[in-house]
Design a protein around this nucleic acid. Structure first.
Length: 272
DNA sequence: CCATGAACCTGGTCGC
DNA sequence: TGCGACCAGGTTCATG
């Protein structure tokens, strides 16, 4: 599913259209989607809740209201978009009705996505590491914290409590770009490659955001099936048996950290 | 503390 | 064409 750039695309797409809109009801079509609140209690016609802002934190879409926030996580197959045609697609799991008579639609084939209500961002902030494009994620921070851990680098980069927002695609791309084999121990990576990794993470995420994310299967950030086109920029993810763009040797696919992982054995060194 | 695998779900693809 | 096995952008929990 959506990783940081894809979630950012959803937020950027909605930003110009839903700020100021009022939610009068949230109707779950799959009960587990609404995780920790009673939508009837918090949203009703008598006290509409105005959307003050929409932002992203980690892989969450954050809707800001005067007294609380909604945090929406798309997990693997979630979509969240504004609709004005009253059509409820087959995999819709929750519908937000707005005073303008438009609707926010939460679609999710696999039903893993969740919507949370919190007082503020504190709960999410406590459980997550820094934003990779934020001011706290410096080369110094990364080097210090990689040395501090003795974990497989792929697991560590996927761990949202370490660094927020990376997922399986971008971790593979970043490790390939910086020449680090995913099973390397974080504390054994040479200083220069740690610096490369920091650079790779920032440039790859920035470029992916410019391209509105990667669409591998069916992710779209808009109702009309608008998809990001960063998939055409991927160098290694999904390219089993194809030549490595750097050395032309064959890319391999294996399972690392429980996830499908693409590597070039020649360009990515194992440090242990 | 860390790694692994299962669980949560549904659909698509591949091989026989 | 049909069917089973396996895979999928994520996270959380139990187990060793």
């Amino acid at each position: 599913m959506p990783e940081l750039p894809e979630v950012q695309a959803v937020v950027d797409n909605l930003k110009n259209n839903i700020i100021g809109e009022e939610i009068i009801s949230i109707t779950p079509l799959w009960d587990k989607t609404i995780k920790n609140f009673n939508p009837k209690k918090n949203f009703n016609k008598n006290s509409p809740n105005k959307i003050i802002d929409i932002t992203r934190r980690a892989k969450f879409i954050i809707l800001h209201f005067s007294d609380f926030i909604l945090a929406i996580h798309l997990r693997m197959t979630g979509k969240f978009y504004l609709s004005n045609n009253k059509i409820i697609p087959i995999y819709t799991r929750a519908v937000f009705d707005l005073t303008s008579s438009k609707q926010l639609i939460f679609e999710d084939i696999r039903k893993f996505g969740r919507i949370y209500l919190y007082k503020n961002l504190e709960t999410i902030n406590k459980a997550h590491g820094p934003e990779p494009l934020g001011k706290y994620f410096t080369p110094k921070w990364l080097i210090h914290n990689l040395k501090n851990k003795k974990r497989m680098i792929k697991s560590l980069l996927l761990d949202q409590s370490f660094l927020a927002g990376l997922g399986n695609i971008y971790v593979d791309e970043c490790l390939w770009d910086s020449g680090i084999h995913p099973i390397s121990k974080s504390n054994k990576i040479p200083y220069n490659r740690m610096k490369n990794l920091h650079e790779s993470i920032q440039t790859i995420l920035k470029k992916a955001i410019e391209h509105k994310g990667t669409t591998i299967i069916n992710f779209s950030y808009q109702q009309n099936k608008q998809t990001g086109n960063y998939a055409s920029k991927l160098n290694i993810f999904g390219k089993n048996k194809e030549p490595c763009p750097k050395c032309r040797k064959q890319i391999n696919k294996l399972k690392i950290a429980g996830r499908g992982t693409y590597i070039c054995n020649y360009c990515q060194k194992i440090f242990r």
